[in-house]
C-alpha cells in the first residue's frame, strides 16, 4: 500500500479537557498555538516557544509535555488536558488553594505550567522532599517568586493529601 501523501494541513480529532473535539490544523502549528487560537485555552502560555521555560506545559495522555514542542497534528487521537480542564474537574482544587494561600504566584504567567508539572509530580511521589520538588519544577521558569513559596505550596499539598488518605 502506498503511504499517504504528506499534507500541509490535516483534520484531527482528540479528547480535550474531557470533550471530544475535531478541527483542522496546519502542520506547522504547534500544539500551544492550536489550544490557544482554535479552542481559546489561553491558560496555555507561550514564554519561549523553544521548550525551555515550561509555561506551556500541558498533560498529553496523562503526562506533562511542552505544548510548544508538539505539533498540533500530533494531538490526533490523544487526550489533552490544560489548566482549564484541570480546574473545571476540580482535580487540582487543593493545589490551587495551596498556591493561593501561600502566594506561590505573582504575575501568574508561569502558573498553569507549574501546576501541570506539580500534578505529575504529585501523581508519582507521595511525600516529595523539598529537594525533589525543586528538581521536578526545575524546568519551569518563574521570574517572580524565587520558587520558595512554590515549593512550600506543593509540599503542603502533598502533605494534605497524605493526611487525607491516612484518614480515609
Amino acid at each position: 500500500m502506498a503511504p499517504e501523501a504528506p499534507q500541509r494541513e490535516r483534520a484531527i480529532a482528540f479528547t480535550l479537557n474531557g470533550e471530544s473535539v475535531r478541527c483542522r490544523a496546519p502542520a506547522r502549528t504547534h500544539l500551544g498555538d492550536l489550544l490557544r487560537h482554535e479552542f481559546g485555552l489561553t491558560g496555555v502560555h507561550l514564554g519561549c516557544e523553544h521548550g525551555v521555560c515550561g509555561a506551556c506545559t500541558v498533560l498529553v495522555d496523562g503526562r506533562a509535555m511542552r505544548a510548544c514542542l508538539m505539533l498540533a497534528v500530533q494531538a490526533d487521537g490523544a487526550t489533552v488536558e490544560t489548566v482549564e480542564g484541570l480546574t473545571e474537574s476540580g482535580r487540582i482544587r487543593d493545589l490551587q488553594d495551596a498556591f493561593h494561600a501561600r502566594n506561590a504566584l505573582q504575575c501568574g504567567y508561569c502558573t498553569p505550567g507549574m501546576l501541570v508539572t506539580a500534578v505529575e509530580l504529585l501523581s508519582e511521589a507521595v511525600a516529595p522532599s523539598r529537594e525533589e520538588i525543586r528538581d521536578a519544577i526545575s524546568g519551569n521558569y518563574c521570574r517572580c517568586t524565587g520558587y520558595h513559596a512554590i515549593v512550600d505550596a506543593i509540599s503542603t499539598t502533598a502533605e494534605a493529601r497524605r493526611s487525607k488518605e491516612a484518614a480515609e
Binding site: E4, A5, P6, Q7, R8, D33, V73, D76
Partner: peptide
C-alpha cells in the same frame, strides 16, 4: 517565532515511513 511551512505525514508502519 513560528515554524516555516512544511508538509506532514504520519505513516502507520516502518515500511511506509
Amino acid at each position: 517565532m513560528k515554524a516555516p511551512d512544511f508538509a506532514y505525514a504520519r505513516p502507520a508502519s516502518l515500511d511506509e515511513a
